[in-house]
Design a protein around this nucleic acid. Structure first.
Lengths: 338, 338
DNA sequence: CTGAAAGCGCTTACAG
DNA sequence: CTGAAAGCGCTTACAG
């Protein structure tokens, strides 16, 4: 592959001049410029980004570590991140942690070794020493969706409390009183918050959330199935299952079907995270929708601000309830349609 | 961030010795080794992969350009690619072309500039000059799923012909005679092949595939909707719609619902590409499943073989029919269960 | 076993 | 406006 030296030789100028032309430096004569451009064209020359990065100490690459690529929520997040990054002149390198702290660390390490300009992460756990150290050492970093308390890093996330209250109002209006939740891992902020918000919303109606109605999931479909089976074996099973993410909802649906029960006739089901497929499931699922695209874009903007030395702050966006048919007949006060 | 010089100073050795320790070079004294390792630990040193890449002319990174990250098929492919690559000591940088040739070119260019060791691509179109030139110039390259005829690059793909024949047998057995297909873009190999396989399979039953039963889609949900609407407006609408990918199937489902029709009672629906959600749609969708994970792994192995100078060859894997309920009552000879 | 030195492909003060 | 030169952080023959 042709290097800058070859171009310089071909154009009859120094490599410095070639570099200046390539970087749109103002002080280059028109003549030199055209000769360089001609040589570039003739040789099919493309600058070596590796060499440039070493010299400038910038890679124009952002790292994104997400918890699970197979989760459509994160996939949509990744897409919006890449879009915004591209618009700002960065490319993004995605690492999939698969909800495994060790894999998450592997990707953080690889990304850091590759000297990405900044790191976007949705942590799977409470934070490894590696990640904590990176944040402390001043690596530009931003948390998206999930975050780690006590670390001084901007957080771009959704506040689902109002939407959870709307959901509980909807369920209560439908006559449901025994409500259960499939929680996410306690090590994640979203895992904890969603249970908290649910419990708080129930309290407003004088409803308790007993321990037997809190199932411990891990944001994966299989755990949703397992927890739901446990719920259904209870002497007094819940009338509603609220799953803290879209994949556990799928598992819950499986478990309910396997029992020969029907949603919403025999049991109601609702989800945190709305995904396109929820319109097509049987029945369509009532869900809490996050502004995923906006989340990704805001996260990139915050990170790039940090990288380029501008101040950046945390952003919290509201979620909203999307009522469909999985909890029973939509009430008069439905908030949205599929 | 500490550099190799800092480590050398701290350990009281030369940078050459540090480098040797880091790269497990045999000729290093035990004493030097422990001093270097201690210094590395003390400084929290991590080698700069950018500098290493410049020197060794290897990045240990693979580029993967896929047509659409929001498509669960490609997302699963990407996951298996990353897994196998990681096992072989490579990381992968994903570029999402969003079915847009210009975006595809953008990613190929960026990846090439970053000097990835090899490129895995599932082309959106017939191949841009850039990609053709890269292949010709000897960039290690492998096509997955889709490929470009006439380019001398190994192809790792699925042969769906047998499965399409099984599907047609299933549909014919159910009494269906008017069968239509929502095709993918003619510029993609998978777009063409699936229509060809379908037509061929129909011919075995003496059934023609008239032009009016071939709708032109683009592998995106919206096109599935549009084409299905056109089918339904025909004087003699088809009894079956076969969508050439999972997203167009979703669009078809929407269009059918919007008309107030039911699957499979009023019209049957089948898909190419099986995804976990098809078990949960209303009704569960009969689909042709690709061995996606194996495809991704085989593609990485072929690419790494090329990169490391071993011979590599094309691989074709069979797809299989998964019968569910979207085409009517499962026949006796159902091949699989959800 | 070890170190001095060259060199990977760039960018960028510095001098002219 | 232009070029010679230094230097980014590594690796690796070469000599000892």
């Amino acid at each position: 592959m042709a290097s800058i030296k070859d171009v310089a030789a071909e154009a009859g100028v120094s490599v410095a001049t070639v570099s200046r032309v390539l970087n749109d430096h103002p002080s280059v004569s028109a003549d030199a410029r055209t000769r360089v451009l001609t040589a570039v064209e003739a040789l099919g020359y493309r600058p070596n980004a590796v060499a440039r990065s070493l010299r400038t100490d910038q890679t124009h690459a952002l790292g994104l570590v997400i918890s699970d690529v197979l989760n459509p929520y994160f996939t949509e997040l990744a897409r919006s991140v890449e879009e915004e990054a591209r618009a700002l002149g960065y490319s993004v390198i995605i690492g999939n942690a698969d909800e495994r702290p060790d894999l998450q660390d592997h990707h953080v390490r690889t990304l850091l070794d590759r000297r990405i300009d900044g790191l976007l992460v949705s942590p799977t756990d409470g934070g490894s020493p590696l990640m904590l150290e990176a944040a402390r050492a001043g690596t530009p970093m931003v948390f998206v969706d999930r975050w780690i308390p006590g670390v001084d890093v901007p957080v771009i996330r959704t506040d689902g409390r109002a939407a959870v209250r709307d959901l509980v109002a909807h369920l209560h209006g439908l006559g449901h009183r025994r409500l259960a939740i499939i929680a996410g891992p306690a090590a994640t902020t979203t895992g904890q918050e969603r249970v908290g918000a649910f419990r708080e919303a129930l309290r407003a109606y004088g409803i308790e959330l007993p321990d037997s109605y809190i199932g411990q999931g891990d944001f994966q479909a299989e755990s949703g199935r397992r927890v739901t089976e446990e719920f259904l074996r209870l002497p007094e099973p819940p009338e509603v299952v609220f799953a803290a993410d879209n994949l556990m909802t799928l598992g819950a649906l499986d478990a309910i079907r396997a029992r020969g029960m029907r949603v919403p006739h025999d049991i109601a089901l609702a989800a945190f995270d709305d995904v396109p497929w929820f319109v097509h499931t049987d029945p369509p699922i009532t869900a809490i929708a996050q502004p995923t695209g906006e989340l990704g874009r805001a996260a990139v903007r915050a990170l790039v601000d940090r990288i380029e030395g501008r101040p950046s702050t945390s952003v919290t966006l509201p979620a909203r309830l999307v009522v469909r048919r999985s909890c029973g007949e939509p009430s008069q006060s439905r908030r949205s349609t599929p």
